[in-house]
Each structure stands twice: as structure tokens, then as C-alpha cells.
Design a protein around this nucleic acid. Sequence first.
DNA 1: GCTTGCGTTCGAGCGCGCTCGAACGCATAG
DNA 2: CTATGCGTTCGAGCGCGCTCGAACGCAAGC
Lengths: 179, 179
Amino acid sequence: MATDELMTRALDALGDDGPLSAEAIHRLADLADLPETMTIADVAALLGISAHTLRYYERAGLVEVARDGQGHRVYDAETVRRLVFLTRMRLSGMPMRDLQHYISLVDAGGHTVPERLDVLVEHRDTIRRRIRELTLSLTAVEYKIATYGGSTGPDVQDLGTTDRTALPDEPVRRALPAE
Amino acid sequence: MATDELMTRALDALGDDGPLSAEAIHRLADLADLPETMTIADVAALLGISAHTLRYYERAGLVEVARDGQGHRVYDAETVRRLVFLTRMRLSGMPMRDLQHYISLVDAGGHTVPERLDVLVEHRDTIRRRIRELTLSLTAVEYKIATYGGSTGPDVQDLGTTDRTALPDEPVRRALPAE
DNA sequence: GCTTGCGTTCGAGCGCGCTCGAACGCATAG
DNA sequence: CTATGCGTTCGAGCGCGCTCGAACGCAAGC
């Protein structure tokens, strides 16, 4: 995904185990001091996505972008802020169609705020669910690594002779490694 | 994804906030009392994926499946255990090609155990990274919900009049909601 | 003996989110 | 005056992981 790079930057900026506060999130893109207008190349660099993708988002109706005398796109700060939001949502796995729905609500006016909140809350729950799923999978993988015999484990040679592609039928009862 | 259903069952089986122990993982599919042989329909039901997908996995070289006199697939317990593993890995986001690599290592014999562990460890780190990414996104979404004004928040009407598609430029300094 | 239900193979199609190429325009630099 | 560099539009293609349809076969049940 084109947005992988952005997430890498975001995580790097935060450090691996910071407090993960809302302030940290807010700092990710300096929304406060955006230039008045930006070119497509500027925006692409800011968001870490390609100019192609930005045009694609526009085609998809997620943003409207003004043009200058040469027909070149001119992104104002408001539009860039919207794109920051959209990119965040994409990063967290929200599909294009949901984003299109959300944006249609935004464009429909203030009376759609409750419905927008519904969308956000639903997406929040989706993210939470996905985190739980991944945590479950992580535990399974860690367990398999542990029973294969890690750097400290003594039973590599035992398991290596049979093809243990599933978790062992009779698991060794011991604690998972701390890390 | 066809495997969504399986994950749903897995999570339901665990409860939402259980200890998430290795034992819990191990219980997900009763690897200990698998029947000696199963039909494609049996395996599909067990794994929560379609027969189509099972044939697809076979075509992709992930498993070899014996046939009976009628040419029907006969899955033995070993193969099913491998498929349980493969399905788990798919659920956690490992791409088909990595699975194909891993399986080629398994089929190459016991001397590839270290390399298999490398693959598993790398995948473990990928899962961990993804969890961190999602946690970051989750915080952002929760923040946005909070500043939009939740069920307890008083500032919906303020924010509703402007199209706040990005996080606000001047964030309200207050704690995120507990839940 | 025909229906039904399950299985088979092969290959095409799909949904998603990009990603890219072609063909072109304008403007500044050398 | 041309070359470069950045932009434009349009539409096709791609990578992934399925997903499905077509056309068929066997075997048990009514």
C-alpha cells in the first residue's frame, strides 16, 4: 500500500512505546501551520502517497480541488486537512466506499453530524475488533515459536524431525516467553 | 474474506476479554481429536472457509490431498492440521506467497527449522507492528469522536457547523473518554 | 431409471486500491 | 529554440485472494 510509508513515519515519529496520547496523534501532521495552498507534489510528499493516488481520490469524489490558470491542481489548507483525515482512515483500514459515504455526509451539512459519529464509532469498533484478532493471532504465533524451541528452548531437534505445521497436539505446558 | 467467519467464531469462543492464553488458542480447533479422514465439506466446515478456497490452496501447492476411488479428496488428520495452521496464518495477514515459502521449507525437511523460525519471527514482528499501527489509528479515531462531542460531550453543535474532516487545529485539552 | 446431492476440473471474473502508460501542455533554464 | 520537468486526462493493468460458473461424474434413494 502506498500509505505504508506514512505509517512508518508516524510510528517512527512516536517512538515504539510512547504514551500514544491524542496529542501525539495530533502532532503527526502539522495541521496548524499548513501553507495556504499546495501543489499536488507538495501534498503527495506531505501525506506520503503518490500524485496518482491523490487524483484517484479526487476522481472518487473524496475531495474537490481547485485549478490555477494552467489547469494545475491547487490544494488549499482545508482540502489538505481533509486529505490528512482520509489518509488516516485509509491507514486504519476503512474502505474507500465508507470514506465516500462519510464525505457525502460531511458535504450534506451539519445536520448529519450524528450519522457521521455513527460511522466513526462503527469504525472504531472495527479497529478494536481487528486489534483483538491480531492479538489472538500473535499469541498463536508466539506459542508456535516457543514450542518450536526458541534461542533458549531445548526441543528444536525433537520437533524438527516431524513436520509440525500445526500447533502440537500435546502442548508443552510452560509459560510463554516474556518477549 | 472467507476467513472472517472463522475469526468471529474464534473470538466468540474466547470471550471478549479473556486471558488470551496459549491454551485458549490451542482449544480453538480440537487438534487432538480429529477424525482420521475428512471430506472437503467437513474440512470447509471445520475451518470456516469454502471448498473452493480449499481447492485453491491445493492448487497453490500448500497441501497435497489424497483421493479415494471416486477421485474425491480425502483429508487426513495431518493435512487438516496443516490447514488449521495455514488458516491461522492467513487470518493474521500472512500473504499466500509467504505461506508457500514456509511450506516449501517444511517439505524440504528438518534442516530448515531455523529458517522456518526466521519466517515465524518475522511474521510475529509484522503482526506486532500492525497492532501498533492500529492502536495509533484507534487513538486518532477516538480522539475525533471525543472532539466531535460524544453522548456526554457538549460541543457537537460547535463542530457541526464547520466541516471538521481533519482533527481540529486547536485540540480541546481534555482526557479521552474511558471507553 | 431418473433425480438429488455431492464431488470433480478448468478457467474466467471480481472487488479493492491503487499504479501506470500514453499522449499531451505549459513554462522556465540553458 | 529546444530540452526538462512538472503538470494534465483517460483508460488500462495489476496483485491479491478468493469466488464462481460451466460442464461433467458417481452413487444412493424413491
